[in-house]
Design a binder for these strands. Structure first.
Lengths: 112, 112
DNA sequence: TGACTTAGTAAGAAATAACTGCATACTTGT
DNA sequence: ACAAGTATGCAGTTATTTCTTACTAAGTCA
């Protein structure tokens, strides 16, 4: 008895499609901590991410309204990324989730 | 400059490993709504899930301390699943995330 | 001229997650 | 006797994500 005909209609599932893949949280976190980062700076903050995945993710997050891209017409090129208001609105939820995650980590450690 | 040497140490990333895969939220949600469900009942509530994925997920979630399995020695077999306290502690975070997700859904609809 | 910088792109391979279909062993209802 | 319901599990395949290894443009600096 789901409230939603399609799973995609559930706001929670929808939220997870926005932040649930492997690199979304690290990207959001780096932007939150630094407010504004250039492409390669961001890449250095998100350790291990490839160009492919980073540029793809940024493009998607821009379309989804989580991230703003600001391009300067300079050479060498300069592009700055930051969170939108909607992106920042996500932070409290993430902090709440992180708190739960932390408690779970402790529990697992003590149990095993 | 991550605070954690390994990504797995981040409580947030850890939380997502617990709830981020395709069927975790639907399962948790069904158990939250109904408090206690037998295996096949649960399966009917989580529309489209396969036995493979459901039984696998339940086993993992039991190990992770999110779900309790209570087995009755009857014939035909009876097994009841419910959320642990830790599992229920997750609900407020999910509600907060869902609220954000809902706002994002509206935003996307209005924009496109 | 040739190396260096920045912000990406492209194509294919590899890794991971999920699905399909079937099997179990026992009991109740028709 | 036979179908249906109980709680799973396994093998094999497909689908989805992520990674690898290149490569680009335009200008600067030596």
């Amino acid at each position: 008895m789901n409230r939603y005909k399609r799973k995609e209609d559930c706001p929670l599932t929808f939220a997870l499609t926005l932040i649930g893949s492997k690199w979304r949280l690290p990207i959001i976190w780096a932007l939150w901590k630094n407010k504004t980062l250039r492409y390669n700076e961001l890449k250095r903050h998100v350790d291990g991410i490839t160009n492919m995945v980073l540029s793809q993710s940024l493009k998607e997050m821009e379309n989804q309204g989580i991230v703003v891209r600001k391009q300067f017409l300079e050479i060498p090129p300069r592009v700055e990324y930051s969170l939108t208001e909607a992106g920042e609105a996500l932070i409290p939820s993430l902090e709440s989730l992180a708190k739960w995650g932390k408690a779970m980590q402790v529990k697992v450690k003590n149990h095993v």
